[in-house]
Amino acid sequence: MDQTSSSFVGFAGLASKNKEATKMKAKRRKKISGADLAFRICNGIFMVLFVIITLYPVLNTLAVSLNDGTDALRGGIYLFPRVFTWKNYETVLSKDNLITGAFITVARTVIGTLLALVMNAILAFIVSRKNFIFAKPVSLFWVITMYVNGGLIPTFLLFKSLGLTNSFAVYVIPGMVSAFNMLVIRTYMRGIPDSLEESAQLDGAGYTTIFLKIISPLCKPVYATVALFVAVGQWNSWFDAMLYNRMASQYTTLQYELMKLLSSVSNQSSSAEAMKNAGEGSVTPTSVRAAATIITMLPIICIYPFLQRYFVTGLTLGGVKE
């Protein structure tokens, strides 16, 4: 599970090793039935196709982002840029709204994730204490929120009257506690033996100490899982920026700016118009968007392969509810 990086590096080596292993196995068993071989080949083709379909659009965007904008309008760019340039990236990095968006996105991801993690962990800790008299009602109170919510308009009006529109707080405060994330942590905490808590209690530890010094260090994997879920959600969300902070450009986010780029691209009817709009020589909305897309996905692509075991934990724990 945690050998992702090495499997990337050693893919070629592993593949040949495996081929050898298969060969040896084949020799030992002396036969692989025809049907079996056919299955393996088909399966291999399916997997190769799957990988191509998954990766191609991303690699194509990368190629377009590194290609001269006007030249890209001719089409025919697949995996490699035809007329190489950094110009698209320079344009993106010189746009104030995108810089602001990037800054706000990083800020909301960091602050939002920390707040959510702390609150969900505290709540999960509270409801997983066996002696706590209100554990059940508090649990139920949150589980209900998974199925019933006020919906878009009542929520919008509430946030407006709370003064959360046109503010940074609307990104990090409203979604702080989530029943799903709380349940994931709670399930994990329930797996920790009671004896740890009991012996700490005998030593005179209060609940704060038990939470901070005993339970939390053991919960690091599940905390990482929840942090990952929340961080990805924060990084990718755009609708709140559009709905609540449309008028406050100082709180725009990267995804929202990307969305505006997308609509400007799909609204452009002809390439001539695109060139006219470009203004900066060889840069077009399409190529700038490609560069912005790559910049937006880069942090996630770099991080997620190393966190794989955490999402498996989270998804399996999340399936257990009451």
Partner: peptide, 21 residues
């Protein structure tokens, strides 16, 4: 192939982490 499996699986997660935008 165990290595191939790992690589395919890692790649398969990628789109989930991309926003709808």
């Amino acid at each position: 192939s165990k290595g191939g499996k790992k690589v395919v699986q890692t790649i398969s997660y990628l789109p989930h982490f991309l926003s709808w935008i």
